[in-house]
Amino acid sequence: MKILRRAMLRAAARLVPSRERAEWLAEWSAELWYAQESCAVDADRFCLGAFQDALCLRRQRSGEERRTSPWLASPARCLLLLAGLDAIAWLAVLPIPRSPGPIPLRAILLLMGMACPILLATTRLSLGDCPASRYAPSLATRMRRWLFLAAKIALIMAGMYAGLLLAASLGEQTRPAAALVYALLFGSVLALRWALRDQRRRCPVCLRLLTNPVTVGQRASWFLEWNCTELICLRGHGVLYIPENPTNWFGAQLWMYLDSSWRGF
């Protein structure tokens, strides 16, 4: 029985983030030793609780870190990643012989035209409020944000175009081609949603992903107080507030520029 209990703890430990696993297991193993000695606690039920603790710890850590992939944190790397995916798609598609006919340039516009209403129905297009501030950067810097979004969308479209070429090579009116077009439509909606969501989580100045999420307020008090998640630009450009329960006075995320004294932190 003792072996089974230890095995339960080891299985639960697999759920704990790796850097904390050894200490977590040491604590639970030690406490199990005492639980087995004690008559007041059911050792089997005690071990089952380890799974709950491991899951909570995992959720807590992932919430704190809100995993930001190093490849996506910097805007240049984000574009490089998209360009790399496009290159792979094009390298896969170009050698395939295609039936003679016009390259479906209009098809990509049609695909995007179909994706846009779906996108409008399923997500907000707004990038959030950004009140005017004397700490706001120059117009050229602010324009970079829009250029970055445009570049992401262009790279997504280039990938979709490669997919359409593949569909064209499968021949007209065939089932695989139709299935691929539907998959591309679905994929383009998801990709554009990601592009917008990614844009909202970036600093408008340096375009790096915002980090260190902190919950402010409580859900029960959303009617009278703020209930939001606060993210900060590690370079000290500003703070982003994302409402947990959008209301008519705090409906969209709000970006606040910070003065230059924050840059040193």
Partner: peptide, 16 residues
């Protein structure tokens, strides 16, 4: 463990 014994709460509540 002693917190569990005193409060009567299960391990899955106390440790998290």
């Amino acid at each position: 463990l002693s917190v569990m014994e005193m409060t009567g709460l299960p391990s899955g509540t106390v440790y998290p």
